[in-house]
Amino acid sequence: MSSAYTLSHLGALEAESIHVLREAVAESERPVLLFSGGKDSAVVLHLAVKAFHPARLPFPILHVDTGHNFPEVIEFRDRQVAHYDADLLVASVQDWIDEGRLVEERGRNASRNRLQIEPLVATIEEHEFDAVFGGARRDEEKARAKERVFSFRDEFSQWDPKAQRPELWDLYNARTRRGEHVRVFPISNWTEADVWGYIRDQQIELPSIYYAHPRRVFSRDGMWMAESDHIQMTGDEQVQERSVRFRTVGDMPVTGAFESTATTIDEIIEEVRVTRVTERGASRADDRMTEAAMEDRKKQGYF
């Protein structure tokens, strides 16, 4: 540090994120935190706890449960909720399918990714949430690079990239009319390396699947997919045991693992440092289908 009053880059990012969290809560009636169980949402939850300390979290946590989650992620979610004495809401895709409100996709690339959108939007409407926190980062993907920190959604939860509110200085505009809301992304300006560095510095707990572990997997499209009841294997796909870890947390059928022996945070940081493929390119089958995949999903209300 060059002077006693200078923050490190992680300190400066943390200060900005805490400012965003406080501003959104101060300016909205009914905020909620979307929690996927992934490392980014774990970091946002940690920042939220810091922002309102020593008070309890002033908003509930919302998990969209696809029914295809890794069991380790659900355990992690429940542990975090208990640890922080937080309120948990679950929007269940399985319930919607069982009630006939959603129809399961079929085929080799079937996923419940798109099916998350309706239960999420319905839960936001039902509870009249007007500020919805998410863990998206601008460095993840090209469409996200242009999204605001406070991202306005109309009454259909749609994002209109051409009609975004200008965002200047740290003066955020969270004003909405009834039925509208803002998605708020406190770690917009963090990179993957920043997130890992912060997880190390703050000793933030993560689901165990981020660390290398032995798992029964099979190879598909250059990724190792976890064997599970939720994925159909074709005849020539062979299950074998490998030491793998996951770089992102999504649904079991669409989240690929890669071979790794990194069992500590420092080993993971070193792996991230030398890696040559983006997180999403490496591990999300759904994002690889079309270049504009994310832009399309965001417009419909996906994160």
């Binding site: 540090m1 060059s2 200078t6 923050l7 490190s8 880059h9 992680l10 400066a12 990012l13 990179t191 993957e192 390396a193 920043d194 890992w196 560095g197 912060y198 190390r200 510095d201 940081i269 991230v272 440092r273 890696t275």
Partner: peptide, 12 residues
């Protein structure tokens, strides 16, 4: 990514 997330980095 070339940079380690060391504490001495400054945000610009």
């Amino acid at each position: 990514m070339t940079a380690d997330t060391t504490d001495s980095m400054e945000l610009v």
